[in-house]
Structures are given as C-alpha cells and as structure tokens.
C-alpha cells in the first residue's frame, strides 16, 4: 500500500479522475444497451488482465484462456441449477477448479517455448470445448452438451446473482477489474514479478542465475486461471445463458490475446486500453457495416490489428504514455517513476 501512495501525485490524480469517471458513468449513461456495452468492455478488460499474469509477465502466449473462463461459468451454473447453490459461492468453487486445471496444464506446458506453448493452449481450449459438447450429464449434473445451459430466472436477487437493472452488474465487474489491476500492480512490484520478467524471454539465462522460472510461472498461471474462472461466472450471470461454442470457443481466447497485444501486454493499463479500443471498434463496425456488406466488419477489424501491430508493436500503451507525459508530467521529464504505464519497459 505504501508503494502505491508513493507514486507521483499527478499519476495518482489521473488514476483517481479516471476511476471517478468510471464510477459516475452510469449517471450519464442510462440506456441499458449502452450499459451492456460498457459492462462488456470492462469484462473484457478484466479477462485480459487475468490473461496478463501469464501472457504478459511470463513471456508466453496463451491462446486457450476461454477454457478457464468456461470452467468457472459451468461450475457456478451447474451448482446453481442442480443444488441451488448461490453463484457467489459457485464462483469461488469455479475459480478454484480453474486454478487447479491451470496448474495441471501448466506443470508440463509452461516449460515449453513460445510457439509450443501457444499451440498447446489452443489444444487445451478446444479439448475442453469438445469434451463439454460431448457430455450430456454427469450423474445429477446437467451439462447439456452442445445446447448449453439456460440459467433459471429468479426475481431480482443478490444471492442468485441476478438483477433486473444493469447497474449492479456494472459495479460488480468494475470492482472485480479494480481488484485484478491492484493485484497486477502488487505482483509486478514483488519478487515474483521481477523473476517472471527476468525469465520472460530467456528462461535458460534466468534459470542459470538460480531463478526457478517454471515455479513462478506456475504461480502466475494459478492466479490467472482462478481470476479468469471468477470472470466466467460473472459472464454466465450477465448473459443468463452459457453456450459452449461462445464461452469455450477459440474466438474468445483469441479476442483476449488481441486486446492484450493491441493495448500493450505486460502493462497494467494495456488490457484496459485494449478493451476500450477494440470492443467499441468491433461493436461499431458490426453495427454499421455488418448488415451492409457481410464480412466487411471483420475485414476492418483484421486491418486494425495489422496496422496497430505495424506501428505500435508494444501496443497502444506506448503512444498513450507519451501523450500523458506531454500533458501532465512535462516538468518531470521522463522520470515517471514505477507507475503502471512505465512498466512496459520493465516487462521486456
């Protein structure tokens, strides 16, 4: 906590302003459809931040994160449908299951290098989806195979995690995002964070220095999967319907990776920035062009990926950092201190 308060006051000011803006946003935005979009933006920022623990700091590229999101979603939903257990409790169980699964998968795969790890995670993600689609029920637990599960509707109820208004969903996911961002911050400034960064690109060199890279990677993996599982429950409760092809699909895993890379992986604000940019872009292009000329919106989306990667290979965090420096921290020059945005360099 002390570290946090030792920040440059201007950075704190910007963060506080941003936070304040997010908290009062629902006062300005009243349309439920627009609220839904903002909730999804924050949810994707959350998913990407959980991904960041592995994909950002451990120097590997996971492309199967939907598996852990799906495990969280399915666990809480199945527990609620079968035993009436509150999704809040199911969320924790789901997170723990996802973390366990993450460790089981991480143990052997985290030793692999870039491409192998990426492909292994794709196989895990797809494997989980195929498994779920093939299973109708396990004992009393209805999985429903490819049809997915439609969550029983209840009245407006906190314990059942169902609300008529979008507002509670908004604040819940906002709080979840803040927690995960704080966790990211503390991890980056902890021993684990430094070790992960050291082992990111050259694990052999770090191992030679006596850092047990794979052990720290495993810890990062467990945290990441646990948090992703929690997000999965939120996703399920927001949509009240889980469908294996979308919650366990490759598309979701890829979108998370896109957001991370476009925003700036291995930084605190990268995922938020990426989600703020990519989500509205994909929604807008779909709304404006989706019905005009089928496929055009995805062409535009692909072009944006290519162009951003071409000019900002470290993600949009870079130009934003420069911009913020110009606007606010001019006098202090480039000595921004260990704030979130500077960490891009640290992670490399």
């Amino acid at each position: 906590m002390k570290q946090l308060l030792n920040q440059n006051p201007k950075i704190l000011l910007i963060s506080a302003l941003l936070l304040g803006a997010l908290f009062i946003l629902p006062l300005v935005v009243t349309s439920p459809a627009l609220m839904q979009i903002f909730i999804l933006i924050i949810l994707y920022a959350y998913f990407t931040s959980t991904w960041n623990f592995v994909g950002g700091f451990a120097g590997v590229l996971p492309l199967g994160h939907s598996a852990f999101i799906g495990i969280g979603a399915y666990t809480s939903t199945v527990l609620f449908q079968t035993f009436g257990i509150s999704p809040w409790l199911g969320m924790i169980v789901g997170g723990l299951l996802a973390a366990m699964m993450g460790v089981v998968i991480g143990l052997p795969t985290l030793k692999l290098r870039g491409a192998y790890f990426a492909l292994a995670t794709i196989a895990v993600g797809e494997g989980v989806r195929v498994l779920v689609e093939n299973v109708k029920q396990v004992g009393p637990l209805m999985i429903n195979g490819p049809s997915g599960i439609s969550i029983k509707l209840t009245e407006n109820s906190f314990s059942a995690f169902q609300f008529d208004s979008k507002l509670p969903y908004y604040y819940i996911i906002l709080a979840m995002l803040l927690i995960v961002l704080l966790l990211t911050y503390f991890m980056m400034n902890s021993k684990i964070g430094y070790y992960l960064a050291a082992g990111g690109e050259e694990p052999e060199a770090a191992e030679a220095l006596g850092i047990k890279v794979s052990r720290y990677r495993l810890i990062a993996m467990a945290i990441s999967c646990f948090l992703a599982g929690l997000g999965g429950t939120f996703y399920a409760q927001l949509m009240l319907y889980i469908y294996p092809k979308s919650i366990l699909g490759l598309d979701l895993s890829f979108e998370i990776a896109f957001i991370a890379l476009i925003g700036g992986r291995g930084t605190i604000l990268g995922p938020v920035l990426g989600a703020l940019l990519l989500r509205p872009v994909s929604e807008l292009t779909r709304i404006y062009f989706g019905s005009m000329l089928p496929g055009l919106h995805l062409v535009i989306f692909g072009l944006i990926l290519i162009v951003v990667m071409r000019y900002y290979p470290k993600g949009l965090v870079e130009p934003v950092k420069i911009l913020l420096n110009k606007l606010f921290i001019n006098r202090l020059g480039k000595q921004g201190g260990p704030d979130g945005t500077d960490s891009a360099e640290k992670a490399d």
């Binding site: 459809a33 627009l34 979009i37 949509m239 319907y241 469908y243 929604e283 989706g290 019905s291």
Partner: peptide, 23 residues
C-alpha cells in the same frame, strides 16, 4: 428493416437485441 449480424453467437444476439430495443 434493420439488420444485425449475430455471427451465430448467442452473446452477440443478446447484445444486439438490447441495442435494437433500447437504441
């Protein structure tokens, strides 16, 4: 007529329905 592309994905369908109705 207003068209929205669901991409065959339920979550997109839900989001589009909210938009169609509210906006």
């Amino acid at each position: 007529l207003l068209f929205a592309d669901s991409k065959g994905d339920p979550t997109v369908g839900v989001t589009e329905a909210e938009r169609m109705i509210n906006s």
